[in-house]
Nucleic acid binder design. Sequence first.
DNA 1: GTTAACACCTGAGAGC
DNA 2: TGCTCTCAGGTGTTAA
Length: 289
Amino acid sequence: MPELPEVEVVRRGLERWVSGRTIAEAQVLHPRSVRRHPAGAEDFAARLKGHIVGIARRRGKYLWLPLADTDASILGHLGMSGQLLVQPEDAADEKHLRIRIRFDDSLGTELRFVDQRTFGGLSLHDNTPEGLPEVIAHIARDPLDPAFDDAAFQTALRLRRTTVKRALLDQSLISGVGNIYADEALWRAKLHYERPTATLTRPRSAELLRHVRDVMNEALAVGGTSFDSLYVNVNGESGYFDRSLDAYGREDEPCRRCGTPMRRRPWMNRSSYFCPRCQRPPRPTRTLS
DNA sequence: GTTAACACCTGAGAGC
DNA sequence: TGCTCTCAGGTGTTAA
């Protein structure tokens, strides 16, 4: 389940193995994987041909490959199960291979987009003057971006009438955080996932932001998190951060801080993992009559 | 304008 | 053995 650290690992792989190469041909093997390209699969393939791939970039969970000689970029999102793999041209096709990009050189490798659940995809978009694909202009900067504005984030958090985990997953407020790292950061900050954002003091929100950054940087240092074969880097290798998770997936296991069995609660069609002792639920708010 | 709920999608695993 | 059901969850769309 790729979140920011996993996407950054993939971006680095693309920068190393794909940037600077000229696209010879693109094959779309599943139309859903280019559904965000309004002009369709044929147009997507035709517009890539002959262009040089620029330096891979990322914002939150989106990554893009600028086409160096145009004002457009190939935008990618891995969704739930997407993989961007650099494979030998003669390697057998993966079962869920959706898009193949061949290059006009003699390196003998090609770029493959493999996606079991087809939540992810590739598309081609014009760039904004800042070099960002226009369709992701609404995505906030991520907390590892040097230009991320801590004070603005804290202010926005205070003004929201929502709960803290919803806010962490709101990509227009802060990008790159998914269910796993949200639970990890909240556990470290000793915050319950349903804590109203308006009740967070500046020091508390600053501490939460610090934990978000810490957990992402630690995951990045070991190549990301992987529970199964659904997340891998461009070489098909998995990360190791799942061995360091303190909250996510640890239902009934003892809290690493206080020993209380961790709990899992259904939340927004997914799960929230928390320690019922360290992360006390918020007091019920008074209703005005 | 803001917030919440839902659809999309496939395969692993549990239960019968 | 094989069938059905549940679960996993990021994003865009729709509803409130």
